[in-house]
């Protein structure tokens, strides 16, 4: 194939990925909206049993209890009826959940084709400008998410991940530049390490931020919702403790990778290309800020009074600084990292 054909394939694949992510997001939204009608069968219990410290046992509001409130003669038949309806709704919830994940897998495959063919079109590593970084970073986000679904049953992240994917690809289209070779400063094997590490860390930060949002919602709900009103989507999520643990694991993976990208590979490359390993370029300043905030997150988790809510908020601030480093600095600040192609 010629580079033009690869470029066309890449563009089509990324466009297809956007559409399929949109469909996946819709599937997850439908899943959520059906859940609102279904009583809060606590699916999280089975997954997290034995895992948390002193979690109050939650009463699963079962179909039987719903029926029991009537106390009439036909309680038995009502119970059966409610049970059947509930079963049908449960089945629909599960079906849309599975559909969302299947579509996400398909979209991820499209995106992978898009990123790889972009590399063939440009005849280099496909992460040399803002558009390419966005698509690569998103591929990392979705890969981590699917890995978590596979190994840690993190389906509940589906809606937020696919929604983020659609937004990110929309943004990527705004930053689109045709495939082509790179300026001499980027012609280095450090591009491979520095940028892919940054994208990997960024992808994991994204998942960590999504989990932190759910943690805050769930922890608030656990504090404020009386036992008998615990219905709806939130009560299908794992306990806040389990969500917090997932968020921590993702962040604990991302932080060393980010350290490598921003504080080791970056400075080495800067030393080679610009003659200084650290020069307080706006990109460097914000990479440093992101690093410091996430270092704060790790410390907050070990500090009384900051655990839980405080740490989760710091993680979200960290993610905001990362997004600003990626988007804001490219668009607003000038500096030596002006490779967005815009």
């Amino acid at each position: 194939m010629s580079t033009e054909q690869w470029a066309t394939l890449s563009n089509n694949a990324v466009a297809a990925a956007t559409v399929v992510f949109g469909l996946a997001c819709i599937a997850h939204l439908i899943e959520w909206s059906i859940t609102r009608q279904v009583s809060g069968a606590d699916t999280s219990r089975a997954e997290t049993v034995g895992a948390e410290i002193a979690r109050p046992a939650r009463q699963a509001v079962s179909a039987g209890q719903v029926g029991a409130f009537d106390g009439g003669q036909d309680a038995q038949s009502r119970r059966e009826l409610a049970g059947e309806e509930l079963g049908a709704d449960e089945e629909r919830v599960a079906r849309f959940g599975r559909l969302g994940i299947a579509l996400t897998v398909l979209a991820a495959a499209c995106l992978l084709v898009g990123v790889v063919s972009r590399g063939f079109a440009a005849e280099r590593a496909p992460w040399g400008n803002m558009y390419e970084f966005a698509t690569l970073g998103l591929l990392v986000v979705v890969t981590i998410y699917l890995g978590l679904v596979r190994f840690m049953k993190a389906q509940w992240l589906g809606g937020i991940v696919t929604g983020f994917a659609v937004c990110m690809l929309g943004l990527a289209f705004l930053a689109y530049v045709p495939a082509g070779p790179l300026v001499p400063a980027l012609d280095s094997y450090w591009l491979l390490l520095h940028v892919s590490a940054a994208a990997t860390a960024g992808g994991a930060f994204t998942i960590g931020a999504g989990a932190s949002i759910f943690y805050l919602l769930k922890a608030k709900a656990e504090r404020e919702t009386p036992e008998d009103q615990r219905t709806g989507y939130l009560w299908r999520l794992p306990s806040s403790t389990a969500i917090d643990r997932l968020a921590y694991r993702v962040h604990a993976f991302a932080f060393p990778v980010w350290t490598f990208a921003a504080l080791i590979a970056g400075p080495i490359w800067a030393e080679h290309a610009w003659g200084r390993y650290w020069g307080w370029d706006p990109k460097e300043v914000w990479a440093f800020i992101t690093w410091v905030v996430y270092a704060g997150y790790l410390h907050a988790r070990a500090t009384a009074g900051w655990r839980g809510k405080g740490a989760a908020i710091i993680a979200l601030i960290g993610f905001a600084t990362f997004l600003f480093d990626f988007i804001g600095v490219n668009l607003i600040a000038s500096g030596q990292h002006t490779y967005s192609g815009l």
């Binding site: 300043v285 440093f288 410091v292 905030v293 704060g296 500090t303 009074g305 900051w306």
Partner: peptide
């Protein structure tokens, strides 16, 4: 630890003007 945490966050905050 609390002071270290606050100092870290202050350091992040203090770096911001340097980029604008």
């Amino acid at each position: 630890m609390r002071t270290a945490l606050l100092l870290l966050l202050m350091l992040a905050l203090a770096a911001i003007p340097g980029s604008f």
